Amino acid sequence: MTTAEPRSYPFSLPERLDVEPMFANLRANEPLTRVRLPYGEPGWLATRYEDVKVVLGDPRFSRAASLQHDEPRMRPQPSQPGGILSMDPPDHSRLRRLVTKAFTVRRIEQLRPRVREIADGLVDAMIDQGPPADLVEAFALPVPVTVICELLGVPYEDRVDFRHWSDAFLSTTKFTPEEVVDCTGRMRAYLEGLIAQRRAEPRDDLLSGLVAARDNEDRLSEEELVMLAMALLVAGHETTASQIPNFVYTLLTHPGQLAVLRADLSLVPKAVEELMRFVPLGLGAGIARYATEDIELGGVLVRAGEAVLPALASANRDERVFADPDELDLRRQDTSHIGFGHGVHHCLGAPLARMELQVALDTLLRRLPGLRFADGEAGIDWKEGLSTRGPERMMLTWDH
């Protein structure tokens, strides 16, 4: 292990959706640098696109090994055994196969009319009430929450509880460690109750399918079943619920690009890809991977047993890959971003998130002419103490 004093990371407090300014200097001069996060041991931070892809995609970098280490992290709690994000193949592949069929592009396209119906219904309510409206509570949260509830088989009326538990799950400083443990236990007990219900009365939902895979086919353990249900419930709504207002904020603060999109809504799918590249969702770097052997990366020899953290936000602004990377360009041809990750842990729900984001942007711009901030930055409250970035309140108005 190198003796160089690691830098404290994050390097600075995030300002709205700004990308860490030091990333550009590191990509140019020190693409792998030693860092220390608020919790855990030091690790390497990878900032270049190609290096980040290697960390995410090369099997010599292990997630499962993190369970044997005090992994560098933003949250007090380390990763728990049994979770899909802490597994390597073949265990990871086994669990992923159980849910992949629910998230194929073909299956997700079959859901698009239902998501349009949900989005239109929410906008109807916004129009009926009249502006201003809080985009987060009125639209950005209900769209993915409704979808994941219907897909997984979770009662929508319980959303206040599992939203609270999800925030605790993603907490860096918003909740105390004791509160995180309590909320995690409550979410676990809640899902165990739903699993028991599905055992007694199976339905046509993903949770019933996972219970059948557990009970009839012995393809996962009870612990894996509960942990997988928790991961699907949190990840299935949290990222999209954050990115909808993030994307709207980014467009409203780039009026030239917003005008391009308003003039041609057929650009929405391409716009979603560019916004996925441009907008940094995570507060810190991606979750650590551990080298299982000595590997040269970014001109540095990473020793076996050392952690490497992939900086996705930096990789998506790498000037070696993207022309004018700090410019938002909704007509950009190269959309090879890694906003959904890369390799075996590439976001399972990426097709669903893409579709939801496309429907959300199309619906808002089509049905709310002149959509704009109701009170400038004063009408926006930004999340604090969570590992995901974005507004928790965004007041908007429109022409009516």
Rank of each mutant, 00 (worst) to 15 (best):
A353D: 11
W44Y: 06
M87Y: 05
R96K: 14
E273K: 00
A241Y: 02
Q333Y: 06
L135I: 02
R116M: 03
D134I: 04
G385S: 07
A102T: 03
P155S: 12
L365V: 08
E192V: 04
S221Y: 00
M87N: 13
S62K: 09
V211G: 02
E274C: 05
E306Y: 12
L261V: 10
A229M: 13
M276P: 01
L225R: 06
D218P: 01
A291D: 04
T184S: 11
A304F: 07
E217G: 01
T253P: 01
L267R: 14
V279P: 06
L151S: 11
Y9T: 13
L45F: 12
L13C: 01
E192G: 02
E50M: 00
V180F: 07
V105R: 10
G236C: 00
G130P: 01
Y156S: 04
F61Q: 01
G57T: 02
D326M: 03
R289E: 07
R96C: 03
E178D: 14
V123T: 09
T250M: 12
P132D: 01
A189S: 15
T253I: 02
K383E: 02
T172G: 12
M1C: 12
L348C: 05
K270R: 13
V147T: 12
I108S: 06
V145I: 15
F103E: 05
P81I: 03
S166W: 10
D134N: 03
L309F: 10
P38H: 14
F162D: 00
L357I: 04
E20M: 09
E217R: 08
E178P: 04
R97K: 10
P6F: 09
S266N: 06
K53G: 06
S336I: 05
Q110H: 02
L32H: 15
H346E: 09
L228V: 07
M74S: 14
D324I: 14
R219C: 02
V154A: 09
A313Q: 12
H346D: 05
L122Y: 04
L267P: 14
V154H: 09
L95A: 02
Q243L: 15
S314N: 05
R48N: 08
P325M: 08
A119W: 00
L67E: 12
P280A: 04
D91Y: 04
L191W: 00
D375R: 15
S62V: 11
R73S: 12
T184Q: 13
F23E: 06
R199T: 08
E356K: 07
R367I: 00
D134G: 00
L191P: 01
F23Y: 15
R63Y: 03
T146K: 04
P325Y: 03
R389E: 04
D158S: 13
L13W: 00
D88S: 06
E157D: 15
P155N: 13
T173N: 10
E179H: 13
L233H: 13
H342G: 02
R60Y: 10
L194D: 04
D334F: 12
A323N: 08
T335Y: 02
P113V: 06
D51Q: 12
I195D: 11
R36L: 14
A4Q: 15
R114G: 08
L386S: 08
R277D: 07
H92C: 13
R320H: 05
V234F: 01
R60H: 03
V136N: 05
R159N: 15
P280V: 10
P255T: 05
I338K: 07
L206P: 03
R188E: 00
R96F: 03
A291K: 10
E356M: 08
M22P: 15
P10N: 10
P351S: 06
